[in-house]
Each structure stands twice: as structure tokens, then as C-alpha cells.
Amino acid sequence: MSEPLIFSFEPMHEILPRVRAALNGQGEAQLSVPNPDLDLQRFPGERTPQGIWRPLQAWLDLADRLECHLMTPVVRGERLELHLRRLPGASLHRRSKDQERYGADSEFQRLDKLEDPILLDDLLEALARVRLQPGARILDVGVNSGRELQLLDLAYPGHDFQVVGIDVSESALQLARTRFAHYSFRTLDVNNLPHAALGRFDLVLSLGTLQSSGIEQDRVFRTLLRDHLSPGGALILSLPNCRLEAGRLSYGARLLNFRRPDLSLLLKDLALYRRHLQKHGFRVYVTGKYEIVLTAVPQVGPTGDQPTLESAASGS
């Protein structure tokens, strides 16, 4: 390992290429920078006696952009020692020849999205906005192994709901059944919706499913509204805005074969959902960071009317 890169008053446009060169050459880089804890009233870029002030978040963002992991920093008085290390990619989408991509034995099952504090807080806030009544019917589209269903107990402790989860992976659904034996789960391809036996629901929930490859996104979205959402019902969707690599979240949606984030498709999908829902009488909230959460709730008009199923699902 070479000597650490010592930065004090250098601007970020000089730091970025130097750190990138060190990573390209050795796969890791040591940095010594001013300790941001010494003055919490500063703004990024302000000069202090120790150098240019930058919060720890700036170095986390630098590590993310350079596709490496920031090891736990070490405080040395007025200096902060940072160690950035490149890690081999580890995709959650890998599968063997006989393995389901998101099945019970897949890498995907290692992930618990509710360990992301922003997503957890956003989903709890979204569920609170929906104002579910005891006994409400809830459809989880692409439920997989059902981890997110524990949110219902957190948001509505003591409430009983009628929950139906659908997914194409039978092995993942078996995991969901062991976790939530009191709910109902069906093996069903969302592209085959509508399904008359499902009925209508007070809440349709779908986390990161509609953007999956092979999903007829626009048609499935409109089908859910037209055929499976009850009048006065609500919708919660999440759209991935990250990539998972070697146990870390890397910010930003990626197009196929793109190394860098490109948010064009994410923004296109989000605008389509938002425009369609607002046009037909829903109030729409958009929150999130690594996962964008869209919440659509009925908007009561001046006469007290709520959007009907037919008006919400018609048109474009």
C-alpha cells in the first residue's frame, strides 16, 4: 500500500481523479482529510484552519461514485483517515441453470430491503396515509417471500387484514407462507392479470415489481386500477433507484449494460404513474432515495366525492 493521499485545501475536482487513479492502480486508496466533527456548523466547501470542510457523506458519495467501499474511518485528532477498497461485484440476480432468479435459494433472499432506514420510514409513512380500516383487503403484487408484510403490523398494530400475495415463484411463496400463515398466497404471473378470483382490494401494494424485465408494465398498472382496486382504494408502488453490489447500495437507476446511473426510464415511469393517477382524482406523494415510493390516495373533492374505479382506470 502506498502512502496516504493527504488532502487539506484541494478542491474536489482535483481529489476525484487522484483517488480514481489510486483505485485503478491498486484497487484501494488511503486518504487523510480534515476531521468534519470539529465544526458541525460549516457548509461543504468552507475553509477552516485544517482545510476545506466536507461532511462524511461527501466521502461516502465519492466512494459510491468510484464503485468502492468506504471502510470505517479512523479519527486522528484534527485528521480523518479514510480507506477506500474496490470489491468484486456480487449480483443479487445471479442464478444457476436450475435456480429461480428470485426463488428461495437465490441470492435475492439474502436481502432485507427493510434494513434501508429511508425505505422503511417512507413505507410506514405511506401506509399511514392510506388509513386502512380493520379487515381491509390488501393485494401485494410480486410479494416474493413476504418480508415487507411485517410493515402492516408496524403501521397498524393489533389490526387484522385480509392479505393476498401473488408471485411467479412458488419456492419464494413457500417462505412467505411460513412467515405469514394467516395470509393467502397464490402462484400467479402478474402478466396474466386480471384474475377474477382475486376480487378487489382497499390497497394494492407492489414494491419494485412493475419495473422487472418481462413485465408488461403499463398494461399491468392499468389492469390493477381497473380490475382489482376498490372504489376509494389506494396504491403504493416502489421503483428501484439503485444497484446492489457486494453488500452495498449504489445510488441511481441503471439502464441495461450502463455502468453509470441514468434516471431517464425511472423518471418516465414515475411521470406516467403520477400523471395518470392525478388525472383521475388521486392525490400522489413521491418520496425515497434508493427506492422511490409512490403513494396514491383518493382525493376527496368539494362535494365529498372520491374517484370511482371506472374513472381512475379509464383514459391515458
Rank of each mutant, 00 (worst) to 15 (best):
M1G: 09
L5W: 05
I6T: 15
S8D: 15
F9A: 11
P11G: 14
M12G: 09
I15P: 05
L16E: 15
R18T: 13
A21P: 06
N24P: 00
Q26W: 13
G27N: 01
L31D: 05
P34E: 04
N35P: 02
L38F: 00
Q41L: 05
F43W: 08
F43R: 07
E46P: 06
R47M: 13
T48C: 05
I52A: 04
I52D: 00
L60C: 10
A63T: 09
C68F: 02
L70D: 03
T72N: 08
P73E: 03
L80H: 00
L80P: 03
E81K: 08
H83V: 04
A90G: 08
A90S: 12
H93Y: 14
D105Y: 07
F108K: 15
F108R: 12
F108C: 07
Q109C: 11
Q109V: 13
L114R: 07
L114Y: 02
E115K: 13
E115C: 14
D116C: 12
I118D: 15
L123V: 04
L123S: 03
E125N: 12
E125P: 05
A128G: 09
A128Y: 08
A128Q: 10
R131M: 01
Q133L: 10
P134W: 01
A136M: 00
D140P: 02
G142K: 02
G146I: 10
G146E: 13
L149F: 03
E170A: 13
R177T: 08
T178S: 12
Y183A: 10
N191D: 15
L198A: 01
D202W: 02
L203E: 01
S212F: 12
S213A: 14
R222I: 11
T223I: 10
P231G: 04
P231T: 08
G233F: 03
A234G: 01
I236N: 04
I236W: 00
L237E: 05
R243F: 12
G247W: 05
L249N: 13
L249S: 11
G252Q: 05
N257S: 09
N257V: 06
R260V: 07
R260Y: 05
L265M: 11
K268E: 15
D269M: 14
L270T: 09
A271H: 15
L272N: 15
L272E: 14
R275H: 11
F282A: 02
L294P: 08
T295P: 10
T295Q: 13
Q299V: 04
G301E: 13
G304C: 04
T308H: 00
A312I: 11
A313Q: 03
